[in-house]
């Protein structure tokens, strides 16, 4: 098993005025592992992902990618390093087709985007990659449908397809299954199981069964602090965690 650290945070913090959304987080993400991140609402999971992909600047602390310090860089530079992310709140191009959504994502890999003359439809590699990503998430039948017209669950699938179309090395996924039906979720779980052979994945997810099934490493955040990181079994058996998070979740579900 590959054990190299591909992405690392060092004392990462994000404060908004008095709110400490994240405080002093040091984590290591390993190559070709699926690293789950769980925690109650407001724990700082999205904030962590937003900093890992460059859209948020940390208040303090560092992020290293393959040894390079990257936390001050622009988001698009993160993508060029192979760090791709999906959004918790669906963030797609609603007015164009699913294929075009993924084509925007894929285009950068195959051809110059400063070409003012060649038609956007003339590169078959871009089209093939976009179609492949849509097939991967199970949107084969929606290729030419305008994104605004597909169901919410399908938009979540499209959200994921767009990241896949950028062909990243590291996938940062913010609750990709939230809002999907059971069948769709199963499909995505299967897909993630497959993807983790070749990608490094950071997965934030509320579905505990899915997270326990998929994670090689699991981090629990609570109220901006880092409770524990370990294997699924280590985390499940940690009394502090049961109390702080898993217990609460059970109560919520029971209620």
């Amino acid at each position: 098993m590959a054990n190299d650290i591909i992405l690392e945070t060092e004392s990462l913090s994000k404060h908004w005025g008095g709110i400490k959304a994240l405080n002093d987080i040091s984590l290591q993400f390993r190559d070709r592992q699926l690293h789950g991140v769980v925690g109650p609402n407001g724990a700082g999971k999205s904030t962590l992902l937003n900093m890992l992909c460059g859209t948020l600047k940390p208040t303090s602390g560092c992020i290293f990618h393959k040894g390079d310090q990257i936390e001050g860089m622009k988001p698009w530079k993160f993508v060029r390093r192979g760090i791709g992310r999906s959004f918790q709140k669906t963030n797609i191009y609603a007015d164009v087709t699913c294929l075009e959504n993924c084509a925007v994502a894929a285009q950068r890999r195959f051809t110059g985007s400063f070409n003012l003359f060649a038609s956007r439809h003339s590169n078959t590699l871009v089209r093939d990659a976009a179609e492949k990503a849509l097939r991967q998430v199970g949107l084969d039948s929606r290729i030419n449908t305008v994104a605004a017209e597909i169901s919410y669950g399908e938009q979540r699938q499209l959200e994921l397809a767009m990241v896949l179309a950028t062909d990243p090395c590291i996938l940062l996924l913010d609750e990709p299954m939230a809002g999907m039906g059971h069948e769709e979720s199963q499909r995505i779980i299967e897909l993630l199981n497959e993807l983790k052979q070749s990608y490094s994945i950071v997965l934030v997810e509320h579905d505990m069964d899915a997270i326990f099934e998929l994670s090689d490493q699991l981090t629990v955040l609570d109220n901006g602090t880092h409770l524990i990181t370990g294997t699924v079994d280590e985390v499940r058996n940690e009394p502090q965690v049961k109390e702080a998070y898993l217990g609460k979740e059970d109560e919520e579900e029971a209620a």
Partner: peptide, 18 residues
């Protein structure tokens, strides 16, 4: 294509590497 994407959703376009 990227100009159009930037108008429709600048945040996403930047998150796709442009």
């Amino acid at each position: 294509r990227i100009v159009e994407a930037s108008r429709l959703n600048p945040e996403r376009t930047e998150a796709l590497g442009y």
